[in-house]
């Protein structure tokens, strides 16, 4: 599965993941607390400098993450021109652009495993209520592992249905796909047990 991470050795790559995420959160809070054009422009410049100069990322790596929202941002600016004024619109749009770019920098310079470690660290306080942070890594790995499996089963069901004359009936695809996946989940649960993933005490017999 293709991740948006771009390997590198720059100071931004080497900075701790927790620090980068904290920076992102601080930026988000700050930009909304102080909605002024000079602050927003400075933030935008700082983010671009961090990504392109300090982090030596290709511009394409950042653009890849701006592309999905750029039309929305343009529409938003148009809306502000009509309803409020150009300055408010510029602040609103550039603020979002700066945030999206900053997030793109973090994503492109931080390994998935490091981010998982931060998520696990963030979840640690929840251990007292029974959450097991170490499970996050396993769940993420399992999701990535089973995306191609599910996609393949969907393709196979579609072929089987096409062979029997069905065309593009997507609901008819979903029911068998879900049932197959649920059966797969049942066996997968057993396989996890068989390979020692359950360190919880054994279930008691429900009926003696």
């Amino acid at each position: 599965m293709l991740s948006l991470y771009r390997p590198g050795t720059s100071p931004v790559h080497r900075a701790r993941a927790g620090l980068k995420l904290a920076g992102l959160a601080a930026l988000g809070t700050g930009l909304f607390a102080v909605p002024r054009i000079e602050v927003v422009l400075a933030a935008l410049a700082a983010v671009l400098a961090t990504g392109l100069l300090l982090g030596r990322l290709p511009a394409g790596a950042l653009w890849a993450q701006v592309r999905p929202v750029w039309l929305l941002l343009a529409g938003l600016f148009g809306f502000h021109l009509l309803v409020t004024d150009a300055l408010t619109g510029t602040v609103a749009v550039l603020r979002l652009l700066a945030l999206v770019l900053a997030a793109a920098v973090v994503t492109a310079t931080t390994r998935v495993t490091e981010l998982v470690a931060v998520v696990e660290w963030l979840l640690r306080p929840l251990e007292v209520v029974g959450v097991r942070p170490a499970r996050v890594g396993l769940l993420v790995a399992m999701t990535l592992r089973f995306i191609p499996v599910v996609a393949e089963r969907a393709a196979r069901i579609r072929e089987a249905q096409a062979a029997r004359g069905a065309s593009g009936v997507r609901l008819g695809l979903l029911v068998p796909l879900l049932v197959q996946v649920l059966q797969l989940a049942h066996t997968l649960g057993e396989a996890l047990d068989a390979r020692g993933a359950d360190d919880v005490p054994v279930r008691r017999p429900r009926r003696a």
């Binding site: 797969l184 057993e190 396989a191 996890l192 047990d193 993933a197 054994v202």
Partner: peptide, 23 residues
């Protein structure tokens, strides 16, 4: 004593897709 038992007895399923958990 399921945990101790499972260390001694391994299990291989029919469908390998259901037991490979990492990418």
């Amino acid at each position: 004593q399921a945990r101790e038992v499972r260390r001694r007895v391994g299990f291989v399923f029919q469908d390998p897709d259901a037991q490979i958990v990492h990418p």
